[in-house]
């Protein structure tokens, strides 16, 4: 059982919406402990020895899938990743039957990515084992937000009062939604900015500022998070062309200067260089893009560990 100082009583990690700020901080503390382990000569811990983690990816992924595989490996779990686009679901099997079969094959933890919002929650209701959401359509991508906010937490010592802009395709972005929940719960002020067709005003009800004016939106921000334009989720064109998008909303040197002097540049990847960000900015000293990737390993270790009943308190002490 988690103690009051480091609460975590969940079998699943489905959304950031349902987490408290304290639970998010528990993940951070756990991730920090794992980060120390990762820096050791033998960068491995027996925490999940004997358990099997199954990654079910119904959508393409490189970064997230590899990060979950790596995280499970570092925790000494057995891990397998299934490309579900070629699986029995294409033979007409229902998703429920598929996951119940995998459960029957003695899976201990399921990590699932699916194009339909709500799917991770649905599977978590069906199965009695931990289910981690690796992205459900445009709904949530909780481990991404945890690693993003952990990166900011490390950089700034906390998110309270931080001013953050999220720029790009907000409407179709699960990363944006999870980060909005996480950042606002941790006390940051969030502005979402981009073309009106990709940044609907309904987002205001999530407690963020909606803007279509880049200059005012970036003014005085501590961090900017760029999101890729997701062609694959847009069934009708929400803006005229990528070229026009870059001219109107791409991050370049001039626009970077509108932010605070040492503001950090974040991007969940994959980057489309020259579209949402000038190539050299992605590699600049202000970019924390690769730190995000590294932190993605530690935060996913933390998520796997906590959901399978790991004790954050004792880990941090050890």
């Amino acid at each position: 059982m988690a103690t009051s100082g480091m609460p975590w009583n969940r079998k699943d990690l489905i959304s950031i919406e349902e987490l408290t700020a304290d639970e998010i901080l528990t993940v951070f503390k756990t991730a920090q402990a794992f980060k120390k382990i990762l820096n050791r000569r033998t960068a491995k811990t027996p925490a999940l020895r004997g358990k099997t983690v199954v990654n079910l990816f119904f959508e393409n992924s490189t970064r997230t899938r590899v990060a979950f595989e790596m995280a499970a490996t570092k925790l000494s779990a057995d891990v397998m990743s299934l490309d579900m686009k070629t699986s029995s679901t294409s033979k007409g099997e229902t998703l429920r039957d598929t996951v119940e079969n995998i459960r029957a094959l003695a899976a201990d933890i399921i990590v699932i990515r699916h194009s339909s919002p709500g799917t991770a929650a649905y599977i978590a209701r069906v199965l009695d084992i931990p289910v981690l959401n690796a992205g459900d359509g445009a709904h949530e991508h909780p481990t991404q937000a945890l690693l993003d906010c952990y990166t900011l937490h490390e950089k700034f010592g906390g998110l309270q009062g931080l001013k953050i802009a999220i720029l790009g395709d907000i409407l179709y972005s699960r990363v944006a939604r999870s980060n909005i929940w996480a950042m606002t719960k941790l006390g940051a002020e969030v502005t979402v900015v981009g073309p009106a067709t990709l940044v609907p005003k309904e987002f205001e009800q999530l407690g963020v500022t909606v803007s279509h004016d880049l200059k005012s939106a970036l003014a005085d921000k501590d961090a900017i998070m760029l999101l890729r334009i997701q062609h694959e989720r847009q069934n009708v064109s929400a803006f005229p062309s990528l070229n026009e998008y870059t001219r109107m909303f791409g991050l370049n040197k001039t626009r970077l200067s509108w932010l605070k002097k040492n503001a950090v540049i974040m991007h969940p990847g994959p980057i489309n260089r020259g579209v949402e960000i000038d190539s050299d900015l992605a590699d600049s000293s202000q970019s924390v893009i690769l730190d995000q990737v590294t932190n993605g390993l530690a935060t996913r270790m933390a998520a796997l560990y906590l959901c399978s009943g790991g004790n954050a308190e004792s880990l941090v002490k050890s």
Partner: peptide
């Protein structure tokens, strides 16, 4: 509306 925006459903 707001619910579809929040849930990420089209």
């Amino acid at each position: 509306g707001f619910m579809s925006t929040k849930l990420g459903l089209r």
